[in-house]
């Protein structure tokens, strides 16, 4: 396989366009075995079900978030049994970052949705257990480090928080 080849003609794209119709905004195949789909918040579950049933995409490999500045994108990656990699992109508004969970149709999504929730503050409605996954227990609420407007400070914010608590305790104040 070479990277220098131009746009790849994939017959699967035509099939997908026929089957999914207006549910999907865009389908591209930049190279062999890679298919990128763009969809909306309303129809993405329908597409995932279609991929699972018709294209044998039983292996969810990753869910990740992307900060598009004005909105967020949730990206789902699936392997099909015929070894095509399907990447489904769903855009959600920044001021209301909510999307329905897919844990009911794919149990493998549990940890990935927790990670995206942790780092981007995207709420997965209907997730059975949306606790913290990777950030520390005392990480301050409302800090989502992978959002682009969250700047990496010289001092980790939780260190300052602990420092403030210890100082308050030394002065005999009530610890918050």
């Amino acid at each position: 396989m070479t990277n220098s080849s131009t746009q790849h003609e994939n017959p699967l794209v035509t099939t997908l366009k026929q089957d999914l119709g207006s549910n999907v905004i865009d389908i591209t195949s930049p190279r062999e075995k890679r298919i990128f789909l763009t969809s909306t918040k309303e129809t993405y579950r329908h597409i995932i079900k279609y991929l699972q049933e018709q294209q044998e995409c039983h292996h969810l490999i990753l869910i990740n978030g992307v900060d598009l500045r004005n909105s967020f994108e949730v990206v789902y990656h699936f392997w099909s049994n015929k070894r095509h990699l399907f990447t489904l992109k769903v855009t959600i508004p920044r001021d209301n970052p909510k999307i329905n969970t897919i844990t009911d149709i794919t149990p493998a999504a549990i940890l990935y949705e927790r990670e995206v929730h942790d780092l981007f503050g995207i709420d997965f409605v209907g997730h059975p257990d949306l606790r913290r996954l990777v950030l520390a227990d005392d990480w301050p609420e409302g800090n989502y480090p992978l959002r682009k407007d969250w700047k990496l400070e010289k001092k980790p914010p939780y260190c300052l928080l602990i420092a403030a608590r210890i100082k308050a305790a030394k002065e005999g104040k009530k610890i918050v």
Partner: peptide, 22 residues
């Protein structure tokens, strides 16, 4: 898996890693 999103610059706009252990 590495998911890399480029934006016409010398930095990745988004770099996501999924390690096999997760």
């Amino acid at each position: 898996i590495h998911y890399i999103k480029g934006n016409n610059s010398d930095k990745a706009d988004r770099f996501a890693v999924r390690t096999p252990t997760l």
